[in-house]
Structures are given as structure tokens and as C-alpha cells.
């Protein structure tokens, strides 16, 4: 198998020698290299929005309002709170549950949107490079 490796590497050296003999400029070599890496996998999160992501994470962990508070204070206040809980608690609990469910959906949606923005920004960065490359090609033709 080492013979095969040697054969391939020798042929690659031969092809690289032909490329070198063509006398490409550094810029042309750089452009040629960029063309081999259009999958975006070597790019970091250059356009990532850390503040937005942090806010989305805050929403994701703080969307729920506590429904039930333990009555506290002086005996009159405690009695009053218990009375309120017993009389209008049913409506009050239901409203809070609805609100919490809504908040959960909002927090989840915001989190998904920030993830989507990150993906779009990566895609945009790769496309921006392609546009630059095409512009450089057009410019080269015009010259």
C-alpha cells in the first residue's frame, strides 16, 4: 500500500510543479484556495449576536409566573388572602396558566429565532465571500 501512496504523492507533486510553473500571483493562489472551502465549516460565529442570545436564554428560564403565593403578613391580611384565593382563585389560576403557556411559547420562539439568525448570518458570510470572488473575477475580466 505504501507504493500506492508514493505513486499518488508523486503525481500530486508533478501537478503542483505544473501549477508553480504557471507563475500565479499570491492573490490568485489565495482565491484558488478559497474556492475549495465553500462549505463554511471553517468559519466561526463572526456575526453572532451574544446579547440577543443572552436575552433569549433569560426569557427561556424566566417565563413562568408562580401561580400560588403562600399567604403572609398579619392575621387579618392572611385571612383576607385566603378568602380571595378561595373565592376568585379559580379564575385567577386559570388566567395565570394561560399567561404562562403563552410566555413559554414566546420564549421558545425567540430562542428558535436567534438560532435561525445565527445560521442565516453564517450563510450570509459564505455568500458574501462568493459575491466578492465573483466581483474580483469580473474586475479581472474588465482589466
Amino acid at each position: 500500500m505504501s507504493g500506492n501512496k508514493q505513486d499518488v504523492e508523486e503525481l500530486m507533486q508533478d501537478l503542483r510543479g505544473q501549477i508553480a510553473a504557471e507563475g500565479h500571483t499570491e492573490k490568485e493562489l489565495e482565491e484558488a484556495r478559497k474556492l475549495a472551502y465553500l462549505d463554511g465549516s471553517d468559519k466561526g460565529p463572526e456575526f453572532f449576536y451574544p446579547e440577543l442570545a443572552a436575552k433569549a436564554r433569560y426569557l427561556d428560564t424566566h417565563y413562568e409566573n408562580p401561580i400560588l403565593f403562600a399567604p403572609e403578613g398579619n392575621p387579618v391580611k392572611v385571612a383576607l388572602q385566603k378568602l380571595i384565593l378561595k373565592t376568585v382563585g379559580f379564575t385567577y389560576f386559570r388566567a395565570f396558566r394561560h399567561q404562562n403557556a403563552f410566555n413559554k411559547e414566546v420564549a421558545g420562539t425567540v430562542e428558535e429565532l436567534t438560532a435561525f439568525i445565527r445560521m442565516q448570518e453564517k450563510e450570509n458570510a459564505a455568500l458574501r465571500e462568493q459575491v466578492e470572488r465573483l466581483e474580483a473575477q469580473l474586475k479581472g475580466k474588465a482589466e
Binding site: 500500500m1 507504493g3 500506492n4 501512496k5 505513486d7 499518488v8 504523492e9 503525481l11 500530486m12 501537478l15 503542483r16 505544473q18 501549477i19 504557471e22 500565479h24 493562489l29 482565491e31 484558488a32 484556495r33 474556492l35 475549495a36
Partner: peptide, 23 residues
């Protein structure tokens, strides 16, 4: 796999791609 087998070539930039396809 390509080196071990001798079953092809590889490229790391456009010029190598073009030369390999030509060859």
C-alpha cells in the same frame, strides 16, 4: 483511503482541482 489505495487524486485548491481533472 485514496493514498492507501492509489485509486485517485486529491485537491486543496482550484488549481489542483483543475490539474487533477485535466489529468
Amino acid at each position: 483511503f485514496t493514498l492507501r489505495s492509489g485509486g485517485g487524486l486529491y485537491f486543496e485548491d482550484y488549481f489542483e482541482f483543475a490539474k487533477a481533472v485535466e489529468y
